[in-house]
Write a protein that binds this DNA or RNA. Sequence first.
DNA 1: ATAAAACAGTACTGTTTAGTTTACTTTGGA
DNA 2: TCCAAAGTAAACTAAACAGTACTGTTTTAT
Lengths: 211, 211
Amino acid sequence: MSLASEEMGSRALAKREQILDGARRVFLRDGFAGAGTDAIAAEAKVSKRTLYVYYPSKEELFADVMRKLTIENPQTRALESIEEMSPGDEWELRRDLLELASKIVATMMQPDYLALLRTTIADIHRFPQLGGLFRATVPERALRSFAVFIEKSRERGVVGRDVDGDTAARMFIGPLLTYAVLDGLFAGGPPRPPTREKIEEIVDLYMKSIT
Amino acid sequence: MSLASEEMGSRALAKREQILDGARRVFLRDGFAGAGTDAIAAEAKVSKRTLYVYYPSKEELFADVMRKLTIENPQTRALESIEEMSPGDEWELRRDLLELASKIVATMMQPDYLALLRTTIADIHRFPQLGGLFRATVPERALRSFAVFIEKSRERGVVGRDVDGDTAARMFIGPLLTYAVLDGLFAGGPPRPPTREKIEEIVDLYMKSIT
DNA sequence: ATAAAACAGTACTGTTTAGTTTACTTTGGA
DNA sequence: TCCAAAGTAAACTAAACAGTACTGTTTTAT
């Protein structure tokens, strides 16, 4: 019999967290199929029997790991501060966009974020709800925050009246995404983020398109 | 003993092609781990024994499938015609970009292309050379072709002098890539490409950034 | 202190699957 | 026509792996 969250003491909650923590590292490193329950138990420093007291199957453990990584996504939550920014002129807009682009690149090219991206894409077949969950909680939330920022900037007159928020968001995130996908996901070694100069080129070209 | 390509008659080459064809469908559908050799043999309408006459292992078969899908990439090859285009004014440029964007979206959101993307990303761990191979033969080739197009347009004076080819290419492909990733890879059902209007919005904003 | 609960370590079970073996059938060229 | 190469079908082997059983130890609460 596995335990539900509601009926657990703090000791049990801690063990569950410990298991989740080890499982997260192994799943992000090896994917669902590549991760063995022996390896997970070892990484979590827990016996295999204990693991199965807290989780009834590898599937449920994986689902819980991915749920936490998406819903509680600390990285993407940080991007929600975008909505509070509201530049008054082009100079401020450029400064905000530059800071934002750097933050997004740094976020997307973190090894853990790339691993989450990779694992999600890889295992959508086996866990059909995973794609929608990830999409709704991570990239769509980021796109939406950015769209709000653009719409607010448009009301202030610093962004052109004809610019659609969603499209403007995709045109800003898109070029950064190429670095995450091409130089992050497809790279063998550690990810190589774009230089500051490349980011400035993108922001400067982007400014011309929305103002 | 498996057979090398050089010493095979036309009959053997046909069988090899037949195996490769079935394997491609199963691998693209189920990924490397999910694809069983029984399923591959059944899909190729070949006995398992014959499969192992032509390929020594599932790994080698997978590698050969992916090699063909990337190096011989018919979809991306079609995009090389970009380099031959050379617009004389902004009106022609907009027309060319619109056609190009439609072609790229249609290419990227084909089920087979998305499956190739997904499988490549999923199995880079097991086949480290896969990422570099795919990157060099598919997206980098497309980016490069587009960069050449931009540079040619710049020489003709229809694109601004300060625009870098690689960055311009990423800013054009990037927004389209968001649709492939968010609405293609993360979608459960069939991919939903952006509407013509969305593509026009992107092209129009893009025009403002590079001219 | 001590009983009860939680846990570690490890061996075991059943299942899946890559790859092989065996026995039989088809095909194509001299 | 005939025979050797090529192929089929299905059973089999070996290894990996999810999940369980068992034994002994540590931790917590009273």
